[in-house]
């Protein structure tokens, strides 16, 4: 344009760095009908990539808690948090990815077991602080809790015996220390 005197600056930056990684969000929500549906619908409609979503009660009857793992850069996560806050039932959302926190999940694995290898299975499971919770003539159910990596590692070892069935809860998370997201009011 003829009137311009200022040198063009580089193209306007789009929000976000593009460095995608896994983020863990904790959301404290009012325990009203449909709240899980609202959160799930929002994540789908706004194109956020959810890896896992777990819901549970808290110590208070009218409040539930969700742990949401999503994949994205810091812009996606910030948008996800802001969009979650637009839901009337959402009280508090926190990105605990980089906070010191306990992030655990539980897995149940039904693994093939014979008289010959049952002992081997038990000792592997014990190494991972898991336990055998059910035995059948040709199978065993193994229960393990731990970080995603720990659970992954045990599952990889059990695969050698033949996995018949597998279920994982997805991560549940709690920040370390005495601070409580449930006590904190919505920001």
């Amino acid at each position: 344009m003829s009137g311009d005197t200022i040198a063009a600056r580089p193209a306007r930056a789009l929000p976000g760095s593009g460095e995608h990684r896994r983020h863990v969000l904790v959301a404290v929500v009012q325990n009203r009908t449909g709240v899980l549906n609202r959160v799930a619908s929002l994540m789908r409609a706004r194109n956020f990539n959810i890896e896992s979503l777990s819901v549970s009660h808290t110590d208070s009857d009218d409040v539930s808690r969700m742990t949401i793992t999503i994949h994205g850069d810091e812009f996606h996560v910030e948008q996800a948090i802001k969009q979650l806050y637009r839901l009337i039932d959402v009280l508090k959302v926190q990105d605990v990815t980089d906070e010191p926190s306990v992030q655990h999940e539980l897995a149940l694995v039904k693994v093939r077991a014979t008289d010959r290898n049952r002992g081997e299975i038990v000792s592997i499971v014990e190494m991972y602080r898991g336990r055998v919770v059910d035995l059948a003539p040709d199978a065993a159910i193994v229960e393990v809790t731990g970080t995603e990596a720990e659970v992954d590692a045990l599952i990889a070892l059990l695969r050698g015996f033949g996995i018949k069935e597998l279920v994982r809860t997805g991560a549940v998370v709690m920040a370390r220390g005495s601070a409580s997201i449930e006590e904190a009011t919505k920001r």
Partner: peptide, 11 residues
Amino acid sequence: IDPAEIGKNVA
């Protein structure tokens, strides 16, 4: 008034 609009389309 909606924080979600800020930084959504342009930085």
